[in-house]
Design a protein around this nucleic acid. Structure first.
Lengths: 174, 174
DNA sequence: AATGCATATTTCACTGGTGAAATAAAATGA
DNA sequence: TCATTTTATTTCACCAGTGAAATATGCATT
């Protein structure tokens, strides 16, 4: 079942709900659609990663280290960049160490910390892996004009801004 | 850490990667941003649901039954509407039955099937629960003009369309 | 009616994410 | 300096999703 089919089912469902609760705001469809698109994007990425026996979390972690000038970071910092929980990072780092893509050791300056570093093998892996994803990524935005892209970018950031305001607001607005 | 902060970190990370792999297409940021927004939306929903001891999957299931004229469906059909796996549906239905929000029994026509039906208590729950979500939903689209909404809607559906084309394409395009 | 294929649901083993608590080291400050 | 608090990571117990296989029924063809 494809993404557009799932979206169609979603739209149908909302129609059914509106019959009983007409005050359902427009916007629910878009919210749910965003979630479905995100799931599809994730699935797409995992699909590309699977043959290499990496999952999304591990890849995000690896590429975060890759992105740093010195190739090093700490679990806590990587979590900031990847939006992963520190709890997971232990397991993820274990897996990447076992694969020989990163190393992990105690920090010299602050002995509470752990230093993670991407290995040459890890760098090579990212350098080789990344470009294979680009063609599909371009397909995703096939038919998007410059204006379309910049609209989408603007609107998503606006949405994100609103969501940030809302986050962890204990009481809901009246 | 708020969503916009997480997006900022993401943007920084991509900048770092581009220094080493300049051919990274524009669009990665938007894809990752979509995923982050989706996670935030999900978290927001789960947050509203938690006090009622329901999770998103259970709520989706319940509301799908709610949306049907006769309040009934089968596990397989509910999975089509909710994008949940049939495997999960067993556990989810168990939970909802235990809560008294749905009933479950064998189908008369086709004895392979199981019929799930929302109970009056389940209907009351949805009727009471749904409207409490509307104010926050409206906040999410605060400051969006009519044109903004329709642009976003159009662009998301276009994106979904492209993603559908891509889905399960064994080989990547050259 | 008997065989084989298709459909619907469930079970099971495994993977991945999460909050609370444990551990350990640094920072603060009376 | 010694007690307290804060920061960083890990461990643990639990919850949720998944693919493969099991189970059971229906359907079709001979």
């Amino acid at each position: 079942m494809s993404l557009i089919d799932r979206i169609k089912m979603l739209d149908e469902g909302v129609v059914g709900v509106r019959k009983l609760v007409p005050s359902v705001p427009t916007g629910v469809e878009m919210c749910r659609m965003l979630v479905l698109i995100s799931e599809s994007l994730q699935a797409e990425l995992e699909h590309k990663l699977r043959p290499h026996k990496l999952n999304d979390s591990e890849f995000r972690t690896l590429i975060t280290l890759f992105s740093r000038p010195d190739g090093t970071s700490t679990p806590g910092e990587v979590c900031l960049f990847t939006s992963l929980g520190t709890t997971n990072m232990t397991r993820i780092a274990n897996a990447l160490v076992k694969r020989g893509l990163i190393t992990r050791g105690p920090s010299a300056e602050d002995r509470r910390r752990v230093v993670m570093q991407i290995t040459p093998a890890g760098k090579r892996f990212v350098q080789k892996m990344l470009p294979t994803m680009f063609p599909r990524l371009k397909c995703i935005f096939e038919g998007f004009s410059k204006a379309d892209r910049s609209s989408l970018n603007r609107l998503l950031r606006k949405l994100a801004h609103n969501l940030s305001q809302l986050e962890h607001t204990a009481g809901e607005p009246p």
